[in-house]
Design a protein around this nucleic acid. Structure first.
Lengths: 108, 108
DNA sequence: CTGGTTCATCGGCAATCAGCGATAGAGAAT
DNA sequence: ATTCTCTATCGCTGATTGCCGATGAACCAG
């Protein structure tokens, strides 16, 4: 039901198309239990805080991460629903690409 | 065995991070049976030939497409092996992100 | 050799990206 | 009120991207 269009898929792909942002997702996943704020992430990376903040914003805009104001800090966590959605959209895309004219006829 | 590193995943993601390039993959998939050269693709898109050629080059560099000199033309087709590899790398990535500290312990 | 087709590449242009330091605003604590 | 921490945003730089038209190489047909 929840079909992602090519534009949506492409923009999520672009958001994921940077190694630092993949690292950020991993960091958030590891520290998912507790709170994970921007400086926490920054301390795991050899980058300035402002740079990390901007990468996080990209992930936010792509809907892959959500913000929770928790006391003083802003805490971030993964939107696993969106990740799953994107994952299945990917699989669908690739399945559609692989199965076309050539091999066995698929069941519509 | 064939683990893709984050850098590899990210560069494939970047290659897929443009709607036109997704369209090109779809076009190649449809016309996979026959030959599909650059002008064929161009005629399916509202873009100049040079632009399409450059998009194809991005896909080539990412290893998602291969070139076959066929007579006069250059024919392109999908590298379904690479697509599958990337797809499983994605699934692995997302699975790793979803399953961390919280729920059931996974079998290493 | 001449002419047609295909296509990769070059040069140029505007827009976007990735990085940084600096700054300002929002809360908490003193 | 003052001071601390946290962090989003601004301004700047250089690099990359996306698009185009034009050019030239490669190839086949006359």
């Amino acid at each position: 039901m929840n079909q992602m269009r090519d534009d949506d898929i492409a923009s999520v792909m672009r958001a994921l198309g940077h190694p630092v942002r993949l690292s950020i997702l991993r960091i958030l996943a590891e520290q998912d239990a507790g709170d994970c704020c921007c400086t926490d992430v920054t301390q795991c990376l050899p980058l300035a805080q402002s740079t990390v903040s901007q990468h996080i914003k990209v992930l936010l805009d792509a809907g892959l991460v959500e913000r929770q104001a928790k006391g003083t800090r802003n805490c971030y966590k993964l939107r696993t629903d969106r990740l799953a959605e994107f994952n299945s959209a990917c699989s669908g895309l690739f399945a559609g690409l692989a199965t076309t004219v050539s091999p066995v006829k698929e069941l519509a």
